[in-house]
């Protein structure tokens, strides 16, 4: 699986007659973890949905660097875990196969649950799981799809700080080598996980020039420079939002 890079060329979206964003250009390097920050309402989720093919842009296009269509190569992890309440963790992981009418690979699903540390919860229903465990099942479900591009919309925002740090480590390890675009509100998360980041802000919203982060993710929470980076990013966000 060679992940493609992704190019946004002049993307624009209007809502109720007003432009949410327009003329967005961005290149996501193949196999890298890229972070998108920005204030609420700037259209981050809409942008992600457009890249996922869930809604069409009003202008511009999304292209893969290898020229092949993106459809079928993207998996999507939303803010909510979106687990089926009636199905076990194991069956939730295999949801994609069920919905495509394919043979379900229970051994692979079990191996993925092991990867996220939930072997002992394979037969539990979502209501019996904690918030962190549910997000780990959702991550295993994303991995089961085995798509080269992964889009994530604040998947860890509802978790407590410690669970969140663990989920970040897990995601960084298990998604390494894929082209990932992560939306977050959290500068700390951006600094830990990103190869680079950009900020979507303003009205209509525009993308700031992408910033490369030094070193390689995942950066340890106590790594030198993380605090400094985070502070700088927070300042940028505060200026952009003002």
């Amino acid at each position: 699986m060679v992940p493609p890079g992704i190019e946004l060329r002049g993307l624009g979206l209007r809502y109720a007659g007003a432009a949410v964003f327009s003329g967005l250009h961005l290149t996501l390097t193949a196999g890298e973890f890229f972070v998108l920050l920005g204030p609420s309402g700037a259209g981050k989720t809409s942008l992600l949905r457009i890249i996922a093919g869930l809604e069409p842009p009003d202008e511009g296009l999304v292209a893969a660097s290898d020229g092949a269509p993106l459809a079928g190569r993207v998996s999507y992890m939303a803010q909510q875990d979106l687990l089926l309440p009636w199905a076990s963790a194991l069956n939730n992981v295999m949801l994609g196969a069920t919905l495509r009418g394919q043979l379900r690979d229970a051994a692979r699903a079990a191996a993925l649950l092991e990867e996220v540390g939930l072997t002992h919860r394979a037969h539990a229903r979502p209501a019996e799981l904690s918030g962190g465990e549910r997000q780990r099942v959702a991550l295993a479900r994303t991995l089961y799809e085995d798509r080269p591009v992964v889009l994530m919309d604040e998947p860890f925002s509802s978790l407590d700080a410690i669970t969140r740090v663990r989920m970040q480590d897990l995601a960084a390890r298990l998604l390494a080598g894929r082209t990932v675009l992560l939306i977050t509100h959290d500068p700390f998360e951006a600094c830990r996980l990103g190869h680079g980041f950009t900020i979507l802000s303003g009205s209509p919203a525009r993308l700031a020039a992408p910033t490369r982060l030094p070193g390689l993710p995942p950066r340890a929470p106590d790594e030198d420079g993380i605090l400094h980076l985070q502070g700088e990013l927070l300042r940028q966000l505060a200026q952009g939002g003002a």
Partner: peptide
């Protein structure tokens, strides 16, 4: 959200009805 997820998973219409919309 579930319908979006199913779309990114290339769900067929019938399977979507039987395995997702019906139980839900």
């Amino acid at each position: 959200g579930l319908l979006d997820l199913a779309r990114t998973m290339n769900a067929s219409r019938l399977n979507l009805l039987l395995h997702l919309r019906l139980p839900a």
